[in-house]
Write a protein that binds this DNA or RNA. Structure first.
Length: 223
DNA sequence: AACCAGGAATGTA
DNA sequence: TACATTCATGGT
């Protein structure tokens, strides 16, 4: 067992589920659009929305920037929150066009910190979405904290649950190597694990991290 | 048929 | 700062 439980958890998840091949997208631009579209939405629906964008010729910054909110909304309808998300997609496209000549390479020329701040300044990009973009599109060392992560850590008994996003992010970044591959794989494994476990009350049956889970053996405490 | 899914912005106190 | 509301479709 690793001397650090965060690293140990990665080893257990990786041993149980293997490589996850994230992010499911064809290129960095698609990763960014997907990161916005998947906000509070099942990935299955995001795939439909991405297809809609492709069929409408909207999988490019300039086309997205030029298109009306209504047209983008129609294309991404299956992803839900389509009016708000259409605005978000266009906000990113408009920023890329206006500030970086429409080139992701120019946006990604920023340093790690400045890039994160620039993303956070855009409409529709909060901390989780920014970190997903950093890790899976820009390939920068960061860590994505989502509902699955918080739920798993709480079920393990490692956190109270009301910690800030930044505190949980540092919990991982402070002890993990600055290896983008590893950091991205870790979050993907947590999501994979979360889709089956830690959802309903205890549900520790067959859980690969059962032996380190505080909820193991507990009767009916919801989670 | 209620409930949930790889959040973020906005409003209120 | 802390908490409530809004956004909306599709699968179980």
């Amino acid at each position: 067992m690793s001397v650090n439980r965060i690293r140990d958890l990665f080893d257990r998840l990786h041993a149980a589920y293997g490589p996850q091949a994230w992010w499911p997208a064809n290129d960095p631009f698609e990763v960014i659009l997907g990161a916005i579209l998947t906000q509070r939405t099942a990935w299955r629906n995001v795939e439909h929305a991405i297809r809609g964008l492709r069929e409408s010729g909207l999988l490019a910054a300039e086309a997205l920037d030029d298109a009306s909110v209504e047209r983008v909304a129609v294309a991404i309808r299956p992803a839900g929150f389509y009016n708000a998300k259409a605005r978000k997609l266009k906000a990113f496209a408009a920023h890329l066009m206006a500030e970086h000549d429409g080139e992701l390479e120019r946006l990604f020329a920023r340093g790690d910190g400045p890039l994160r701040e620039e993303l956070l300044g855009l409409y529709g990009i909060g901390e989780e979405t920014a970190d997903a973009i950093l890790v899976y599109a820009a390939e920068r060392p960061s860590f994505v904290i989502d509902a699955y992560t918080r739920r798993l850590l709480r079920r393990l008994g490692w956190i109270a649950g009301d910690e800030s996003y930044g505190a949980l992010r540092e919990l991982f970044l402070d002890v993990l190597p600055r290896d983008v591959r590893l950091l991205g794989e870790y979050h993907a494994l947590i999501v994979r694990h979360g889709k089956v476990h830690c959802r309903t009350a205890p549900a520790c049956d067959g859980c690969p991290v059962r032996s380190i889970c505080a909820a193991a053996g507990e009767p009916e405490t919801g989670g």
